[in-house]
Amino acid sequence: MREAAVNVDEKLAVDKFEVDEGNPHIVLREEPDPAAFDKLVLCCPAGLYRRDEEGSPSFDCAGCLECGTCRLLCGDALLEKWEFPQGGMGVSYRYG
């Protein structure tokens, strides 16, 4: 039986993202719960939640797949706001 190989980076590279710079659809709390943030470092399929070399959290909603993983796993412990982007904004899946 042949194994299927999927390169996630290649799949994501063909998607189109329209970012609404003035109105982000995800806003983190000023002091997000560290344990909740670390969950998303591991679970966000787009890899938007990261820690730098000093361990400081960073997040950018550009490139969001709008899957809701952060909302489901962490909700109010991490997020000030989560909504779908306004019409015409956000991700457009281009292949598959």
Rank of each mutant, 00 (worst) to 15 (best):
D9F: 06
D9M: 03
E10R: 06
E10G: 00
K11F: 07
L12H: 06
L12W: 03
A13M: 00
K16F: 02
K16I: 10
F17M: 08
E18P: 00
E18I: 14
E18K: 12
G22S: 09
P24G: 04
H25F: 03
H25L: 08
H25V: 01
I26V: 15
I26L: 07
I26Y: 11
I26W: 06
V27L: 14
R29P: 00
E30Y: 02
E30C: 04
E31I: 13
E31N: 14
E31K: 14
P32W: 04
P32E: 02
P32V: 02
D33S: 07
A35K: 14
A35I: 11
F37D: 02
K39Y: 10
L40W: 09
V41E: 08
L42I: 12
L42P: 00
L42M: 11
P45G: 07
A46V: 11
A46Q: 10
G47R: 13
G47Y: 06
L48H: 02
L48E: 00
L48A: 02
Y49G: 00
R50E: 03
E53K: 15
E53R: 15
E53T: 05
E54F: 10
E54K: 14
E54T: 14
P57H: 09
P57C: 04
P57D: 03
S58G: 11
S58Y: 07
S58P: 04
F59C: 07
F59M: 05
D60S: 14
A62V: 09
A62F: 12
A62Q: 13
C64D: 02
L65V: 13
E66T: 11
E66A: 14
C67R: 09
C67H: 10
G68S: 11
G68Y: 09
T69H: 10
T69I: 12
C70Y: 06
R71W: 15
R71G: 10
L72G: 07
L73M: 13
C74A: 14
G75Q: 08
D76K: 15
D76H: 08
A77H: 05
L78C: 01
L79V: 11
E80W: 05
E80T: 07
E80D: 08
E80R: 11
K81F: 08
E83R: 15
F84S: 02
F84Y: 14
Q86T: 06
G87I: 10
G88L: 02
G88P: 09
M89I: 01
G90D: 01
